[in-house]
Design a binder for these strands. Structure first.
Lengths: 336, 336
DNA sequence: CGCATTTTTGCAATCGATTGCAAAGATTTG
DNA sequence: CAAATCTTTGCAATCGATTGCAAAAATGCG
């Protein structure tokens, strides 16, 4: 490998001059600069970034901690993060921690030892126990919360608004008997979506019936079972809002099983807008979460923190990203 | 930050000794080793990996080049790669190149400058023009081919076998009129799957009808349109095999539109086993590709190349991974 | 031309670790 | 007890760049 010393020798100048010339420093005369540049090209010089970064005490890399990149939403986040980082001259190291706090801590330690410039902690499926990570690196949280005192930067999808918008959309379709199949009770995101649901009912003067709220486990089958209960109850709902798309698919199955047509007899609303939402029949109306943009924002915020020297004003940044209702085929105005 | 020199001072020994002690080198007496270790812990010493890697001329990182991590299959590959790398003490830098060869080249250059230990080039959607990358780094290709002389390592899903197995599965169900909706004609993977389809017909003494082979563009809608043509033709097929799951969903739509029941009147077979296959109704029978394992194997092979010093025997390694038929609800024995 | 400025360049230290070789210290052995 | 051997430690170089400061060269000006 050719180093700046080799170039220096070939050019009959010092390594310092070569370094500055290649950095296009204007302390070096134009003629020397061009000559050195040319020689470097001829010799096929490539800078050793490890050496440079080491000297500079910054790796120009940031670490992305995620539970599982192969999850569709996490993948979108990763893509957005990578995009923003690249635009800012950073690159992205990924570590899947599989819902394990020990893995997470060891990833953070590794990042710190590697002199990473920052960390993004994305979308922990463990959000019930999401904590502020212990690290001195600048970091940004995605869809996680912090109970700590210190200011943190967070980019989050707006679960409350999502719950509200979904419910409000169904109400606008004249539905009053709207059931909500939530995720597990102890998840923050579940709680926030539920609050959005409740708020939408209240704002529209629709009484809240606790029998209309069920808690699933995010999986299809729980949506199916709980919807069955709802459809077979005394006073079945005319619309069901599920807290994710998988459970919504289960709801559609349950409706079919009960001889109910979707959307004519019952409307179904999902959440997340995963790919499956476009492929099930009827196509699922759902809340789309712009995860790519969320990742991008998180990346951007982190880069700014790094560039400008950590936390802006020593204050927490909290970006709430609102999703959109994507109207497809599982919702329709209430008949009669 | 505390360095080994700080520890050396505190311990009254030289930095060399500290370095060796922490590396658990047995040239250092047990007592010194323990004392140094203890002091390091007390001072909260963390090794600077950038310095270490720089000195060692190896970053312990490998680069993953992919078109788009947010694609489900690429995400699975990335997950498998990361797993294998971590097991071997490497970490993974990801770069999305979005089907752009310039991006790919610049990513490779960056990786080389960064002193990465290797590169994995995954799953180019551009496979028609997949070429051997120009790099001196050890690399492994995933689902790509090389037209070059030099030996390369490749991990690939077995498209021929996939095409064969899918077709054979339908034949075993007594179908003889089997249509195949392929991807674009100029994709290698399309060609190989088609050959598998043809071979299965031949082995089972079923005449090949070119009217039964159509070329789509991988998207749902092309599956729909081409299936419509098939179902409305003179002699409609009793089974349709689509070269991916998206097009298969289109086929199901077309069948429904033509008043054909799936699977009673027509069987439908997909390819890839994406998540949507489990969520469409009826659930899609398809060829499952173990992408996680593919990624893992590629990672493993690369780590071995790096550890043992590049290409084994100077010969190409070519691992072909066969998928499995996942029986679900869109296929059934031919009636009557 | 000589002195003051300005522009270019080089010296040498530095970042934090690792490592070959030699030296010092400890232990064994005849 | 001295010589030989083995164990433990330190010196100093090295990896490839960057950078503060000083020196050298070029230029300007009276």
């Amino acid at each position: 490998m050719v180093s700046i010393y080799d170039i220096a020798k070939a050019a009959g100048m010092s390594a310092a001059t070569v370094s500055r010339a290649l950095a296009d420093n204007d302390k070096i005369s134009r003629s020397s600069r061009e000559r050195i540049q040319r020689i470097a090209d001829e010799m096929g010089y490539r800078p050793n970034l490890l050496a440079r970064n080491f000297r500079q005490k910054s790796s120009s890399m940031i670490g992305l901690i995620t539970d599982d990149v192969s999850d569709e939403l996490s993948g979108m986040i990763a893509k957005g993060v990578e995009q923003a980082l690249r635009d800012n001259g950073f690159s992205m190291l990924v570590r899947n921690v599989h819902h394990d706090l020990d893995n997470e801590q060891s990833a953070i330690d590794y990042f710190a030892d590697m002199q990473m410039d920052g960390v993004i902690l994305a979308d922990s499926t463990l959000d019930s126990l999401a904590e502020v990570p212990s690290t001195k690196l600048p970091f940004v949280l995605i869809n996680r919360f912090s109970s700590a005192e210190e200011p943190v930067s967070i980019v989050c999808t707006d679960d409350f608004a999502g719950g509200y918008d979904a419910t409000d959309y169904l109400i606008k379709l004249n539905h009053h008997k709207i059931a909500y199949i939530n995720g597990p009770e102890d998840w923050y995101s579940s709680i926030r979506r539920l609050n959005g649901y409740i708020d939408a009912l209240k704002k529209n003067n629709i009484p809240f019936h606790s029998e209309y709220v069920k808690h699933g486990d995010w999986f299809e089958d729980s949506g199916y079972r709980l919807a069955l209960e709802l459809f077979r109850s005394e006073d079945p709902p005319t619309a069901v809002f599920a807290a994710n798309d998988m459970m919504a698919v289960g709801v559609i199955d349950a409706a079919r099983e009960c001889g109910l047509r979707v959307p004519e007899d019952v409307s179904v609303m999902g959440y997340d807008d995963r790919t499956i939402a476009k492929y099930v029949r009827p196509r699922l109306t759902t809340i789309q979460l712009p995860m790519f943009e969320v990742g991008q924002m998180a990346g951007q915020v982190l880069c700014e923190m790094i560039t400008t020297g950590h936390v802006p004003d020593g204050k927490s940044t909290r970006l709430l990203v609102r999703g959109n209702v994507i109207e497809r085929e599982t919702t329709a105005p209430l008949q009669g």
